[in-house]
């Protein structure tokens, strides 16, 4: 690892937090690699800070378009087998997951 890469690397704790938010198991030995890769990418995208965007409206996607609405009609559903057929685990007509304690 070069000194620059070391400088750019993200804090491991941040990687752990982001991995938790992303519901991704990251192995101990991978943490440092992600910290370095992500740090490098983040450092690189910070070139956007060169621009003054204070008066610019953010762009989400298609411009100048508005949401089309559908009528309130039941046109879908009633396809339980299609919905459940790919499930890794099911109990009767439910999806099943390890017991969730509230």
């Amino acid at each position: 690892m070069t000194d620059k890469q070391k400088d750019d690397a993200l804090d491991i704790k941040i990687v752990q937090r982001v991995a938790k938010l992303s519901a991704l198991a990251v192995k101990e030995n991978e943490l440092a690699i992600y910290a370095q890769d992500l740090g490098g990418i983040i450092h690189w995208v910070e070139q956007l800070n060169e621009l003054d965007v204070s008066t610019v409206e953010p762009m989400v996607g298609a411009e100048n378009a508005k949401l089309r609405m559908r009528e309130d009609k039941v046109t879908d559903g009633n396809c339980r087998e299609a919905v459940l057929s790919n499930a890794p685990e099911r109990i009767a007509d439910f999806y099943a997951v390890p017991k969730v304690v509230e």
Binding site: A96, V97, P98, K99
Partner: peptide, 11 residues
């Protein structure tokens, strides 16, 4: 639904 199966939650 937590009370249908002993070790699973049903969705």
């Amino acid at each position: 639904i937590h009370d249908l199966a002993p070790k699973e939650t049903c969705i």
